[in-house]
């Protein structure tokens, strides 16, 4: 029984992975492991434009595959990550980056949490100061 079950399970597992193997066949990994890792890291920061909140690294959409190939091509050409990102931003807009740029028009976006936190601390400070005074007055 056990002898028969094992190969069946192995076969089922292999069968399970076939779709992902077929879908990923177009992106040829770079031979240099360091560069391939760079390509993967960069792909994680790039938005899959047809599936929106997913990176191209985790997508097998046609355009995502094309962009993954393009990233590897540009890395092999010796381009920096920043240059590759700029290349895509020039064509698809900042939307292609999953993490917004730290640019002038995004200052509000980046600083709003800090501003709100500061306001909260300010309130907390006055609140406790007030409580302290009440407490002292009771004495």
């Amino acid at each position: 029984m056990n002898k028969l079950l094992k190969p069946i399970i192995v076969l089922m597992l292999i069968w399970l992975f076939i779709p992902s193997m077929v879908a990923a066949e177009k992106v040829v990994p770079l031979e240099n492991e360091v560069l391939e890792q760079r390509a993967k890291n960069l792909s994680l920061e790039l938005r899959c434009l047809v599936c929106q909140n997913q990176s191209i690294e985790s997508s097998d959409a046609d355009l995502a595959v094309d962009l993954k190939i393009l990233v590897r091509e540009q890395i092999s050409q010796g381009k920096t990550d920043l240059q590759i990102k700029q290349f895509l931003v020039d064509r698809y807009g900042e939307f292609v980056l999953l993490k917004p740029l730290f640019s002038l028009r995004n200052y509000l976006l980046w600083f709003t949490p800090i501003i709100f936190l500061s306001i909260a601390f300010l309130f907390a400070f006055f609140y406790f100061k007030n409580m302290n005074r009440k407490f002292n007055n009771q004495d």
Binding site: L49, L63, L70, G93
Partner: peptide
């Protein structure tokens, strides 16, 4: 064939 012209135009779908 390779879709690069589309990428240059910012074509998504």
């Amino acid at each position: 064939k390779n879709g690069r012209v589309g990428i240059d135009f910012g074509v998504r779908a």
